[in-house]
Simulated scan of single mutants.
Amino acid sequence: MGGLLASVVLTRLVRGSTRRVTDVCGFAVAGGLSVTAILQFWLGALNGSYWANSGAVALTIAATSLSILGLMSVLGYVGFGLGAATMMLIGNPLSGTATAPEMLPGRSGALGQLLPPGAGGQLLRSTAFFDGHGVTRPVVVLAAWLTLGSVLCLAGGLRARAAGATVEDPADRATA
């Protein structure tokens, strides 16, 4: 949910692809620090290193936000709908975060681990309860989504600039 919120707010308030990417990263760090502080110190739901857990949450928020923001930069509000549906309606149920991905039917748990909610849940579980064992795969998955989102954001900005548009992305053009 934090990733969706950041994408919508930044699309409305911030102009320029590079600034949006930078602001998403700042939002992710702030969100990772605050959410982890609540979960670990107030609710006592997490163990392990506060900093490692904060990094896991921040990376998950950044991967989700940048993926959706990138899709919005290229496809406009259709991209937002596609990204939101993928993350919320497919990624969350198939993440296996509430139980375990192995408990989901067929290969759906494995598919869920390839999306940011599943990879983020696995990464947080690894940092909080298993001293960081098993972090490689979720970090690679989240880094791939982060990179894809960044590339899409920058491509959308370059396309708008090349077209000579005064508006930054297709989402802005739809409302202009």
Rank of each mutant, 00 (worst) to 15 (best):
A98Q: 13
A100F: 09
L75Y: 08
S73P: 00
F80M: 10
L71I: 08
L82Q: 01
L89H: 02
L94V: 04
L104H: 03
A85G: 15
Y77W: 15
T99A: 12
L82V: 15
L104A: 03
N92R: 07
A84C: 14
G96A: 08
G76T: 11
L69N: 04
G70F: 01
M72K: 09
L89T: 12
L94T: 08
V74Q: 08
G83K: 08
A84I: 13
L94H: 03
S73Q: 10
P101R: 05
T86A: 15
L75F: 13
L82F: 08
F80W: 12
G81D: 06
E102G: 13
M72G: 06
A85C: 14
M72V: 13
P93Q: 09
T86V: 13
T86L: 15
S95D: 04
V74I: 14
L71S: 11
N92T: 15
L89V: 10
A100W: 09
T99I: 13
F80T: 10
G70R: 00
M88P: 00
T99R: 10
G76R: 09
G76H: 06
V74Y: 00
G76P: 01
A98C: 02
L71C: 12
A100D: 12
P101G: 04
Y77A: 14
N92W: 03
I90N: 01
T97I: 12
L82D: 00
G76Y: 02
A85L: 15
M88D: 01
F80N: 03
G96D: 03
S95C: 10
P101Q: 09
G91S: 02
V74A: 13
T99N: 13
S95F: 11
P101S: 10
M88K: 06
G79D: 07
G83F: 04
G81Q: 06
G83V: 09
L104W: 01
L104P: 01
V78I: 15
A85S: 14
A98D: 13
A100L: 12
T99K: 10
A84G: 06
G83A: 11
G96V: 05
L75T: 03
A100T: 12
T99M: 11
N92Q: 14
G83E: 01
T99P: 03
G76W: 04
L104F: 04
F80P: 00
P93T: 05
G79P: 01
V74P: 00
G91T: 08
L82P: 00
S95T: 08
G79T: 07
G70N: 02
T97G: 05
P93K: 06
M103P: 00
P93L: 13
G70E: 05
